[in-house]
Design a binder for these strands. Structure first.
Lengths: 229, 229
DNA sequence: CTTTTTAGTGTTTAAATAACACTATGTCAA
DNA sequence: TTGACATAGTGTTATTTAAACACTAAAAAG
């Protein structure tokens, strides 16, 4: 036991709620624990903080190690420090949430040594620790934030149709949106770049594709603009 | 050194950004450090986490010990864990923000052993550690949140005039509001209880006093209501 | 060439927001 | 007591934004 301190210290961990978007559902990436406590239970990817990395770096490292995900949108959610949240000892965890393009990452998650899988947020297994609380809070944050900041684009493929975009908002916000009003408003924002491309391999009229125009968005933010969809 | 662990551990701290409202300014409570590092510098009240208390409890305890404040509105802000934020060793801090009624608490803060004082947020001294970053983020959070949740009432005396209420929003949001529109909207919310009292000891027509009606507010939240001022 | 499936498109009504100025009531001092 | 001063209190109109609503267009498949 080579690390000794004058006062007792909690262990510090990071955990990540990784959201992905299916055609029908909002999904979360979970990992099946291969160690006690909660062996066999599904849990959020995460692990202990090292002293040579920031909290943010720790979250990204764990994500990479446990799921293969890199360069994703990742943001701090909140810190959870209840006394008995880990039965072994006192562990305080800094929870994060991440948004990934399911299409790009579907495979990698499953190739890791541990069993990893995507679950629909409205059909989750029992989770280890207080991870259900963390997940609930992450979902609330996503629902709140998606209307004010264009983070939702992180969930879509780079090129997408307006129908896909609308579907994303409907899935996240869990309510239907009016097609014409949605399209009017989305285009009026001025952060969608219309492409000279349409969907491929669909058995009906192909939709025009768009791309999120990050430059315009940044310019608008600078001018004190406020998003709202 | 009686506390030994297999892996090195960061120290965990909590810090609080305590906001108070003056007639003219939004203020923050700071404490002058009497120990190194940063001895003599102003800093946010805070201290180390103990293992028999939750993070929230630690923040409240430190607030009580260092400033005498109890039973205030207090909420987690974010966790700051940069490698070199404390020159002594690795310290990760969970920052909080609190809102207090300056009128009730003006005295207590000054009676503590350490020097404590209120500073206007737009006229702050150089702060210890990364506390300026924490403070900036806390202010942004307050400005963002005050429009969606009626937390601002925590800054006002229990009984207040509509002018005081408007002044509070103007100070926090740093922009003038239209008097008639403000009053219309504030009253329409249905969370203000009109009292049979008016201001005392003013050298002009006395304003009617109101109280925040928490019961109505809670009832409205239950009915899926959304605040916005 | 008909069926099927989704893309794409405007108008009208209702609601919310923003802009704007005067009268009322009390205190204080001459 | 009365006039000056300071802040309280009060509605209307114009503009913007949001909500409701249904048909035609295009492409693919058989």
């Amino acid at each position: 036991m080579p690390f000794a301190y004058e006062h007792p210290r909690a262990a510090m961990a990071v955990d990540c709620v990784v959201f992905g978007l299916d055609t029908a559902d909002l999904k979360v990436l979970l990992i099946q624990r291969d160690l006690d406590p909660f062996r066999g239970r599904w849990a959020l990817p995460g692990g202990f903080l090292r002293l040579d990395e920031t909290v943010d770096q720790a979250a990204r490292r764990e994500l990479r190690e446990e799921t293969g995900l890199e360069r994703v949108f990742l943001e701090q959610l909140a810190t959870f420090g209840d006394l008995d949240r880990d039965p072994r000892e006192r562990v305080v965890t800094v929870a994060h949430y991440a948004l990934v393009r399911l299409s790009d990452h579907r495979v990698q998650a499953a190739t890791d040594a541990r069993d990893a899988a995507w679950f629909a947020v409205d059909d989750l297994p029992t989770l280890a620790f207080d991870h259900d609380r963390i997940l609930t809070q992450a979902l609330a944050r996503l629902q709140g934030k998606v209307r004010w900041q264009p983070i939702g684009f992180e969930l879509l493929p780079e090129k997408f149709s307006l129908t896909q975009l609308q579907r994303m908002y409907e899935i996240i916000l869990e309510r239907p949106l009016d097609k014409r009003n949605f399209r009017k408003k989305a285009l009026a924002l001025g952060i969608l770049q219309e492409l000279d491309e349409v969907e491929q391999d669909v058995a009906h009229r192909a939709a025009r594709l768009y791309r999120f125009d990050e430059k315009s968005y940044r310019r608008m933010v600078k001018d004190g603009f406020h998003f709202e969809l």
